[in-house]
């Protein structure tokens, strides 16, 4: 059964979450909805026209961010402003606090992805993930977040033991976790038996993954929206998340090559 990736969720427009929650859309949001999935010209037209009714720019910034923003500065600008607006909305509209909390979490995670794009800002992403994936936080169960973080841990500047332990205590029932665990175990001890066993399990869960890691050119540059366990879509997503991590650990590529035959 396919499931949405975290990367899909963080780019989902707020009006869709409102619809899932049966919250009535404003006239402006209705216009945005009409244009969101259409061709670029029509989408832009509806988005801009919606301003006559829509007082916030959350959708506008998100659309710009997804389709046009080129520099990190512009991307951060979009997300930081959206976070400010959402916090304000949460204070004003207490009835829908849960919705706004969720949207804030997703926009923060989007911000983490933007920070992750540039090596010199990755420490900010780490910080955001740590804050989001905190025991006191309501969002420890955000779908897909553990996999995103686990697959990137070898690239972290600072790893906090408690944080990684919590992540690695997750069950070994998904290739999204097991490949990350195998790499982590290997990075600590290249002769680790556990690492070999975990990699063998990973290959059972999804044998397509090495294809998207072993050759640098084949590592996907963009995430996928949906994945199906054991299928190519999942393998591509794992490749996208962890390709760089595997190449960063000395000997890990050979370890994977050997195991995958």
């Amino acid at each position: 059964m396919s499931q949405f990736t975290l990367h899909h969720l963080i780019t989902t427009p707020p009006f869709l979450f409102k619809k899932y929650e049966d919250i009535e859309l404003s006239k402006g949001e209705q216009l945005i909805e009409q244009g969101w999935e259409m061709n670029t010209r029509t989408s832009l037209e509806y988005l801009l026209r919606s301003l006559y009714e829509e007082t916030t720019l959350i959708h506008h910034r998100l659309y710009y961010l997804i389709h046009y923003a080129k520099t990190q500065d512009e991307k951060i600008r979009c997300l930081a402003a959206n976070l400010d607006d959402l916090e304000l909305l949460m204070k004003q509209d207490k009835k829908n606090k849960k919705l706004y909390s969720l949207l804030i979490a997703f926009q923060s995670l989007f911000l983490a992805e933007v920070f992750w794009e540039e090596e010199f800002t990755r420490h900010n992403a780490e910080e955001l993930w740590r804050c989001t994936y905190n025991e006191e936080n309501d969002f420890t169960d955000i779908a897909g977040l553990p996999a995103v973080v686990m697959n990137r841990i070898p690239l972290f500047k600072k790893t906090k033991k408690a944080f990684t332990e919590r992540l690695f205590s997750l069950p070994d029932d998904s290739a999204l976790f097991t490949y990350a665990k195998a790499l982590s175990l290997y990075s600590k001890d290249s002769q680790s038996k556990k690492a070999k066993e975990m990699l063998a399990l990973s290959l059972q869960l999804n044998p397509n993954v090495p294809e998207f890691i072993l050759t640098k050119k084949r590592i996907p540059k963009n995430p996928v929206d949906e994945i199906e366990p054991g299928q190519i879509s999942e393998a591509k997503y794992i490749g996208y998340l962890s390709g760089e991590s595997w190449w960063s650990v000395k000997g890990a590529i050979d370890f994977l090559k050997l195991a995958s035959g």
């Binding site: 801009l48 720019l57 710009y64």
Partner: peptide, 14 residues
């Protein structure tokens, strides 16, 4: 004009 103008207007809002 056209799409480019709309994109720029959208960008200006940032």
């Amino acid at each position: 004009t056209g799409e480019r103008a709309m994109r720029l207007v959208l960008q200006s809002l940032l």
